[in-house]
Design a protein around this nucleic acid. Structure first.
Lengths: 342, 342
DNA sequence: CTGAAAGCGCTAACAA
DNA sequence: TTGTTAGCGCTTTCAG
């Protein structure tokens, strides 16, 4: 037999559907005896409330959408765990979509979320402006949007991120204190908000610490391992001399590092490499990467909490959360022997 | 104003809801003129069909659940892309849950899927038997289940996987042909189906190629990078001599490799390392990993196609799909100079 | 070709 | 405390 419905239960118990419904939702207006009777029968007949019906009634789907730019690195995975942890108790489900760093796919994903009637969306955008219009439309239609890590410029939306500028500055300081003078920056495309911030810190660090800024060392790299390799290759071909790299993210750093090592350069002796991200990738390569580690799980939790409150119609006083990232000094900038010095 | 409903549209056009509905679903029983009129108005007023209502009507949720054991490696990510590609056109959505290699969480995930009223589930199980009962219940309740990679033993369910045994045997052959005689196998816990298969091949290879089987070289390792490191450490402490490692998966291989390198061993000269998996991880470490590369995207596509057909009530003649994995020979077993020889 | 009406499973205002 | 009734937004007979 099919899944029993509320009506079936009611018929079986010779009660009205409303009473049964009330008994099942722990409404106080039910005699205890009745409630127990109903719950026992529900148990026995294997009754499961039909969420779809419930959703239609409530006008909610109890589903939130999460759109991530990529899942090649475990970045999104950690954030997702945080999100799941934060929402599980509230009976929400998560629909996940990956955009593959392609704003067009991101757009499709957003529209898919709309179709799926999500109650809200958590998103890390792969382009600073491309889907601005759609996001505005979401807000206009009352579907709250929360950003993490990669935000849209020009949209006043709740967000959870780290301080890209400050932490990048600290990382530059680290490299400079190590005595590095010709530091390359592998930057992401500037349609990514964080890229702008991190490279701004890179430039400002030169002024702040009295280093000569050489535009040729500011390299527009991309986002993938391959992009990192290519950027490193171009630097070698151009015969630019450099003694350190500060990369936008782990993938770029790893790509570049592997290439340089293949070409016989020693890390960190010849070239120190620092990154920004905080995924497990930074510890599985050799040498391990010095990096700005973001609290990814917490980022997910915070984003989800923001979203839940927005869904409940709470007016947020503070909707821009800045989390603290920590610098991890590892083998890609420091030789084991030096470790204690830092 | 709120999202307009079908009723709003109908009122606006002075038509009945049924006609509007028909026009929108391209039912043939509508005058072309009317249809165009309706569609134009729908467009203009920004009408979006309410899926929840539609679902309630159809008894389907047009959502499928995907349960993955972990998302630290990009394994699941690739499979997911395949799944998304396969289902997008059919209007299905995906709910994803990660079990973190914990069968208890996997159980919660399964129950969550049930709650979410998914039309079917694609799962890679983290334990061979733990959730057998629940999976049976799914099947009994008519919610189809498709497995990929990691299956349940004792459950006759559709599945998509590679031939673990054969490919492991080939990998062993590769190591043996390289002249390796004392090959370690880092195996996963034996509550994982594939682990049993791969280690069976490991043992059989000894017989087949006339190698001495030393039980001490068959190491129960685990699943994580850390497990790989620990296993390698134990081997060194035990002062077992070995000249190759065949690991259950990339994480173990990488963990072990990094540890051995830190201890001054040369890869592959002192120890050749081979793995089984096929994620991007194998190419970002140094040296790159020789591995059995699985067609992950295809795995996702195939699994999704199976599931869709099951949801549609199609009787499957062939519900066990075995995909072809390819051996990738890389720096962890072969020195660059030798590459052409293979 | 179009409209009226019923109903998917559930909740909730209103009555009793 | 319980039942009656209406309705969430849509599809789909059944009449016209």
């Amino acid at each position: 037999m099919k899944q029993p419905t509320l009506k079936d239960l009611a018929k079986h118990l010779l009660l009205s559907t409303s009473t049964v419904s009330r008994a099942l939702t722990n409404d106080k207006n039910v005699r205890r005896e009745t409630r127990e009777q109903v719950q026992e029968a529900a148990q026995r007949l294997g009754y499961k409330p039909n969420r779809v019906a419930r959703n239609l009634k409530s006008g909610r789907s109890y589903t939130i959408g999460v759109i991530v730019p990529e899942m090649v690195t475990p970045f999104a995975s950690s954030v997702l765990e945080g999100i799941q942890d934060a929402i599980a108790d509230d009976g929400y489900h998560v629909i996940i979509a990956q955009s593959g760093e392609d704003p067009k796919i991101e757009r499709k994903n957003l529209m898919m979320m709309q179709q799926a009637l999500v109650d809200g969306v958590i998103i890390s955008a792969c382009h600073q402006t491309y889907n601005l219009d759609l996001c505005r439309e979401f807000q206009y239609n009352g579907i709250p949007l929360v950003f993490y890590d990669r935000i849209l410029s020009g949209l006043d939306a709740p967000r959870v991120m780290v301080n890209d500028y400050t932490k990048s500055m600290l990382m530059m300081e680290h490299l400079i204190h190590l005595g590095r003078k010709k530091i390359v920056h592998l930057q992401a495309p500037d349609y990514i908000y964080n890229s702008v911030e991190r490279s701004r810190a890179y430039r400002d660090a030169h002024t702040k610490f009295g280093l000569n800024f050489d535009p040729a060392l500011l390299v527009r790299a991309g986002l993938t391992f391959e992009d990192g390799r290519n950027a490193a290759a171009r630097l070698l071909i151009a015969e630019k001399s450099f003694d350190a790299i500060f990369a936008f993210t782990d993938t770029l750093a790893i790509g570049a590092m592997n290439y340089l090592r293949e070409k016989g350069l020693r890390i960190p002796q010849d070239v120190a490499i620092a990154s920004f991200s905080g995924t497990a990738l930074s510890t599985i390569v050799h040498p391990q990467l010095t990096t700005v580690e973001q609290p990814l799980h917490e980022m997910g939790v915070k984003a989800a909490n923001l979203l839940l409150r927005l869904i409940d119609g709470v007016e947020l006083i503070e909707n821009r959360i800045v989390l603290d990232a920590t610098l991890q000094y590892r083998g890609s900038t420091i030789l084991p022997a030096e470790e204690r010095i830092v």
